[in-house]
Simulated assay, not measured.
Amino acid sequence: MSAYARLERARLADLLLETGPDAPTMCAGWATRDLAAHLVVRDRRPDSGLGLLVPPLAGHGEHVRKQKAAEPYERVVAQIRRPPWWSPVSNPLVHELANHAEFFVHHEDVRRGGDTWEPRDLDADETRALWRLARFSSRLALRRLHVPAVVRAPGVGEVKVGDGPAVATLTGHPGEFVLFFFGRQRATRLEIEASPELEQQLRTRRFGT
């Protein structure tokens, strides 16, 4: 199994230190300190997610995150870099599966949070790993929309989603698909061949997190 979750984790920690605690991100309302706190809480405080199951506890996770965001920034980033040996999302059995998309997307949330950015030049192995994530996320999202479509990553792969003739063709790098279907459409570079109405729907739909 690849180790790209760990690599993206390390890259993001480096970038967070480089940008500092107050840089913009693609996560609405969050600066880098807020995003860093989210990642540490996700790793270390599984109780923060109880609000998803128990509505009266809906504010607990945000309270925990804000407490973490108030801590010294360098210490928070150090906790991202060195996750606990065991948690629901960081143990050796699930780390890669649970975290490659998470850390790739949040790395790009920081990279693309400002006005100027360019897609990274990723190696072939990580591109293939991202294509596996892209196939899964695109199938899930497009089937929910009941949109038959072709998802095409030139030189990497192509997949048909849904039944019947395709009414849309989406073309781009696998990493752009991952970002797109995690709700970062405004800062992704995908070509969409579809009716104007459907293209607008795809570019503004609330996907992912």
Rank of each mutant, 00 (worst) to 15 (best):
A78V: 05
P119L: 08
H100Y: 10
A78P: 01
P55Q: 11
P88Y: 08
T116P: 00
H107C: 03
R111T: 09
R82F: 13
S90Q: 13
V94I: 15
E74G: 11
E108F: 01
E71D: 09
F103N: 04
L57F: 07
R65S: 01
I80N: 04
E96C: 10
R75S: 12
E74Q: 14
R111E: 09
P119W: 09
P83K: 10
T116V: 15
E62A: 10
L93Q: 13
R81V: 01
H60A: 04
V94C: 09
L50V: 07
A98T: 08
F104S: 06
V77E: 06
W85H: 05
T116Y: 15
E62D: 03
A70E: 13
H95T: 08
S90L: 05
P72Y: 08
L50K: 00
L50Y: 04
L50C: 00
N99D: 06
L97A: 14
G49A: 14
R112C: 03
E74S: 13
L97C: 00
R112S: 01
K68Y: 06
R120K: 09
N91F: 12
V105T: 13
E118P: 05
E71F: 03
E108S: 01
W85M: 05
P56R: 01
P84R: 09
L93I: 14
A69W: 04
D115A: 15
A101R: 14
H60G: 00
A101N: 11
R112Y: 02
L52K: 13
E96S: 06
L57N: 01
D115K: 13
N91V: 11
Y73G: 04
P72V: 07
W117V: 10
P83W: 12
P119C: 07
E102A: 05
F104M: 05
G113N: 05
H106A: 10
P84E: 08
L52Y: 13
R75H: 11
D109K: 04
V77F: 08
S90M: 12
K68G: 00
P92Y: 13
T116S: 15
H63S: 06
E62L: 01
V77K: 07
G61M: 02
E74P: 02
R111G: 00
G61Y: 01
P55H: 11
V54G: 03
Q79S: 12
G61E: 02
L53I: 12
E74T: 14
V110W: 10
E102H: 04
H100R: 15
R82C: 09
W85A: 12
V110D: 09
R112A: 01
L97P: 00
L93P: 02
R81M: 02
V54E: 03
H95S: 05
A98Y: 08
L93W: 15
S87N: 08
R111A: 12
A70D: 12
A58G: 00
F103T: 04
G61R: 01
A69N: 06
S87I: 10
S90W: 10
G61N: 02
E108L: 03
P72G: 08
V89Q: 06
L53W: 14
H63D: 02
E102K: 03
L57K: 04
R120Q: 13
V110A: 10
V64T: 09
E71L: 13
A58S: 10
A70T: 05
S90D: 14
V105R: 04
P119R: 11
V110Y: 07
E118Y: 13
A69P: 02
H100V: 15
